[in-house]
């Protein structure tokens, strides 16, 4: 038996893979679900915060900056651990799923707010003035003139950041969420074989690689010369 055969027998054991495929598939579904919820809630919250910040009401802006700084400085795993292991002491015991979702949502919202806000700032002041001088209100100007321009500079960094944070769903394995990684690890400990881990790794590639390629496409598509 040569080295490759031995490697294949260990890491690509098809029998083991077949046996645990349903478990990994269930984990895959959980990861997809968790990821979708994080992306939706995180981007929505981030956009809402950026819009609130565009009102330029000092105390509100200060609170938003505090939120953003906090969740840009804390490692996501620390936030998850805080929610899952510390909150029960305050009488609230979120499930691992909820803790992971909430933590990643807060982190994504912070990064998204900063990116959206940067996009809004990147629109020249003259655009606001031109629109307001024709009688458009604040909201109409934001909706029709500023946001469409902001989105263009926003999309590439937003895609990259969203992917990077959504990959963090794997951190759920630390707090008993049976997503891909946790399912694979359980399967490994039952089968005494690392092939489920290989399968899990493949599942992540299947899930996120197309998203990364989409991000690359978006990056070239929205590269904008003024």
């Amino acid at each position: 038996m040569n080295a490759w055969d031995r490697f294949a027998a260990t890491f690509l054991d098809t029998d083991v893979m077949a046996r645990y495929l349903p478990d990994i598939a269930a984990g895959f579904a959980t990861t997809v679900w968790l990821a979708l919820l994080v992306v939706l809630a995180g981007l929505a919250l981030g956009l809402a915060l950026a819009l609130l910040r565009s009102l330029r009401f000092r105390p509100l802006s200060a609170l938003i900056v505090l939120h953003v700084d906090l969740f840009r400085a804390l490692p996501p795993l620390v936030v998850i651990v805080l929610l899952y292991f510390a909150m029960p002491n305050a009488g609230w015991s979120p499930s691992g799923f909820v803790a992971t979702w909430l933590a990643l949502t807060l982190v994504l919202s912070a990064f998204a707010e900063e990116i959206f806000w940067g996009g809004i700032l990147s629109v020249p002041k003259g655009q606001w003035e031109a629109a307001r001088s024709t009688g458009l209100g604040f909201l109409a100007t934001l909706t029709w003139v500023v946001l469409p321009q902001a989105i263009r500079v926003t999309i590439p960094p937003l895609t990259n950041r969203t992917i990077a944070i959504t990959k963090g769903t794997a951190l759920g394995s630390v707090v008993a969420v049976s997503e891909i990684l946790a399912s694979a690890q359980t399967a490994v400990s039952f089968s005494f074989n690392p092939s489920p881990l290989t399968l899990g790794a493949a599942a992540y590639v299947v899930l996120f690689f197309p998203v990364v390629l989409f991000g690359r496409w978006v990056e070239t598509r929205f590269a904008w010369k003024r």
Binding site: E129, A130, A131, R132, T134, G135, L136, Q149
Partner: peptide, 20 residues
């Protein structure tokens, strides 16, 4: 003020057309 503004046209040095 929005009703007033639409009855006063304004033309800027830097045009400020909406590029999109």
């Amino acid at each position: 003020i929005n009703a007033v503004r639409r009855r006063i046209g304004m033309v800027f040095q830097s045009f400020n057309l909406y590029p999109h």
